[in-house]
Design a binder for these strands. Structure first.
Lengths: 246, 246
DNA sequence: GGGGCCAACTTGTTCAGACAAGTTCTCCGC
DNA sequence: GCGGAGAACTTGTCTGAACAAGTTGGCCCC
């Protein structure tokens, strides 16, 4: 908690969480908050902008801000890392590598990872579970420059993200996710312990470093009875987009 | 295009779109942009903050901003309204009401729409298509205070959103979406023209007005071979969250 | 009681300046 | 040629001020 506006945002979040400000009620005016925390209005605006982006409060010119929701959404760290997400819920993340091999990059791999076609990239198939029960099948392709660090990882390591950070200082900073539904194939069904052709939630994502360099792309399939995703949107911020096939 | 920072944001978006700034390259410094557009640095910061929220550029202290992606994501208006989305793609939105009736609000309805339990709410089942081909099944529950305006709508109207705005001035301002996958039931399969138990992408959402008042909640099922969703995230903004079943 | 108008309030936009903190690049010495 | 130190650059934080634009609530009149 370094900066003042982050402190204030956090304090407001907690106040909403413990229903000091209830859903539907109005937040104090900027000038009042500025006086209360002894900061300028600009700093207060930075704080409430964060809550607005999270979908906790709504804001429109002329009217006081409204509390829209109370439950705080998880952090990006929790979304990037399966293990961190599990830990935040008080569950244990388990995982094993089912297959791992180098293959020359296809045109698709090359385009997504910004590499020349034919560069050897590392394919990894992981099964991940919560408290031992498999819920996610991860087919990940790593760029050549990070692959050596991934290759040496213990097949049962709970957190690849954490290990990569510890060994190479790599941070996953940006992600693009495409979500749809698919039927479980024979292999999927076996590894996840569901019946063939049961519906799976598929998330295809590309992750990049802070410098904007793509690190990996992945085809993740979730047991839809165990996991769902949640997104909030507003006229001001629209992270979610609908797309047609191909 | 009213405000200066919106103009600048739009100009930058277009420049990225026509690859004047290519993916992976660096944006000019704030001070340079400020000079170029003859505005203060604060105004430039507002403009680039918008692009950052959209996932188009990445930003970190000390380094110049990096272009992360070029394709512009659709607006919130397009996400809220099926018809607007279709129009933006140059496709024709079709739709028909398959069933419509009032029912007393269940505890779940009451909680989601912030109404007293037992209040009569309007259930509507709509089939929507692109160029005549059905792609979406919409089971929507409308709050009692907006239901009369919905009831009178032509069953084949392409855009409910537009009609509600025209007749009542209502704007859908905020939305919370929970996404998972389900198998098509017999009714779903028939209405969408797919085989039973094929995977569907389910989006359950609650929409509220600008005042933060819930208007409707809906269970939308998309043919997963026709539609997918896309979300971008970063350490700074995380609209997407993973959830476990109940 | 209802409708309309206005004043007070509140958020949005923009400016200019100062300092903090992190990154990048150059130059120097080895 | 390589690495390290440091300067120059760049984004992040924060202040204080002024005006624009939209909302809300109260008051008055019919």
């Amino acid at each position: 908690m370094a900066t003042r506006h982050e402190e204030i945002a956090d304090e407001l979040r907690r106040a909403i969480d413990r229903e000091q400000y209830t859903v539907g009620s109005r937040l104090p005016a900027e000038t009042e908050l500025a006086a209360r925390y002894a900061v300028s209005r600009g700093t207060v605006r930075q704080a409430v902008a964060a809550l607005t982006a999270e979908g906790l409060i709504g804001s429109r010119q002329g009217a006081r801000r409204v509390v829209l929701a109370s439950r705080r959404s998880q952090s990006f760290a929790e979304l990037r890392s399966f293990a961190q997400w599990a830990a935040a819920m008080g569950r244990e993340a388990t995982g094993r590598v089912a297959a791992q091999e180098y293959r020359p990059a296809t045109a698709q791999d090359a385009s997504r990872l910004q590499l020349p076609e034919g560069t050897p990239v590392l394919h990894v198939l992981r099964v991940r579970g919560l408290d031992g029960e498999p819920v996610l099948l991860e087919r990940t392709v790593y760029a050549d420059w990070i692959a050596p660090a991934v290759e040496g990882i213990d097949p049962h390591a709970p957190s690849v993200t954490q290990l990569l950070f510890d060994t190479t200082g790599l941070v996953f900073a940006y992600g693009e996710h495409v979500i749809d539904a698919v039927a479980a194939g024979a292999r999927d069904a076996e590894l996840l312990g569901v019946r063939r052709s049961s519906p799976l939630l598929r998330v295809r994502r590309v992750t990049t470093t802070r410098e904007g360099r793509p690190v990996e792309w992945s085809d993740d399939r979730y047991r839809s009875d165990a996991v769902s995703f949640s997104v909030h949107n507003s006229t001001a911020s629209n992270a979610l987009a609908r797309k047609t096939a191909e």
